[in-house]
Design a protein around this nucleic acid. Structure first.
Length: 261
DNA sequence: ATGGTAGCCCTGCTA
């Protein structure tokens, strides 16, 4: 089975690139973030014609998350639900669905803006809410993958320069501890399981200052998965070509393969 | 050249 995550930075602007990706990437499940679309504007039929069922938690101008699947979609959840307070209430940042033999979750973790700030504090609270939500609906024994834009680089080797990001969001000890808490619950950073030590493996490059061509990036798009999936991962890659060419997103897709019984 | 680009919807805000 092949799963992938991609922050497309507006599905309206990026639809041709997403169609192109679906044509060559051979993914079974694709989790998308930052659709920036209302549900009524989501291109369900376009994806259907390409062989994918899709579900969308849309908001309009900002955020918006989706799941595309060619192995079925059921048991859809939109956001944290009524029992868990959302520190970013009103934002469309989470959708989950059963896709074939696994549950896929598409998350768009809040950016946090600056340190310190109210937005940063609520980013950490959002991670805590995610942990509560996982606990409420799943167990570490489930075949569960939480894919998305975490807006956290888990380790120093996941950024092009530690000094450049000193004092910024995405690299603070508290944010990294929030990701680690998910791993403590039972999730594995599957990309790092395949590439444990390699540096320079990024998934996001700022549009500004030619960062992509200067290899100034960050690895903030993660595929966390429980052992039922993580123990069977055979391949993981960043599709850097998707960051090149005409009207690219500032993020590249991250693809993970695992064997199914 | 004193921080740059992309996307949104009023041209300032968010990333």
């Amino acid at each position: 089975m092949r799963i992938a995550t991609w922050n497309v930075n507006s599905l309206k602007a990026r639809l041709p690139r997403v169609e192109e990706f679906l044509g060559y990437a051979d993914v079974d499940v694709l989790c998308i973030q930052e659709t920036k679309l209302a549900d009524k504007a989501f291109p369900f039929l376009t994806f259907q014609e390409l062989g994918y069922e899709s579900v969308h938690n849309g908001q309009g101008q900002w955020n918006g998350v989706a799941i595309l699947s060619r192995v079925g979609i059921s048991d859809v959840q939109y956001g944290f639900g009524a029992n868990i307070a959302d520190p970013y209430e009103g934002d469309a940042r989470l959708i989950s669905a059963k896709c074939g033999d696994i549950t896929a979750v598409s998350v768009y973790v809040p950016n946090g803006r600056t340190v310190p700030s109210d937005h940063y504090d609520r980013k950490l609270d959002w991670f805590a809410a995610l942990n509560l939500w996982l606990n409420e609906y799943f167990t570490p024994q489930d075949a569960l993958a939480v894919l998305g834009d975490y807006n956290v680089a888990p380790a120093d080797r996941d950024v092009w320069s530690t000094t450049h990001f000193e004092g910024s969001t995405h690299v603070t000890a508290a944010e990294r501890a929030a990701v680690q808490a998910l791993c403590d619950w039972g999730m594995v950073d599957t990309f790092r399981a395949v590439h444990p030590d390699e540096e320079g493996l990024y998934s996001y490059w700022d549009y500004r200052a030619g960062d992509f061509h200067q290899h100034r990036g960050m690895r903030i798009d993660l595929v966390l998965a429980t052992a039922a999936i993580a123990a069977k991962v055979t391949y993981a890659v960043v599709d850097r070509n998707a960051r090149k060419g005409t009207l690219p997103s500032d993020h590249a897709p991250v693809i993970v393969d695992f064997t199914t019984p």
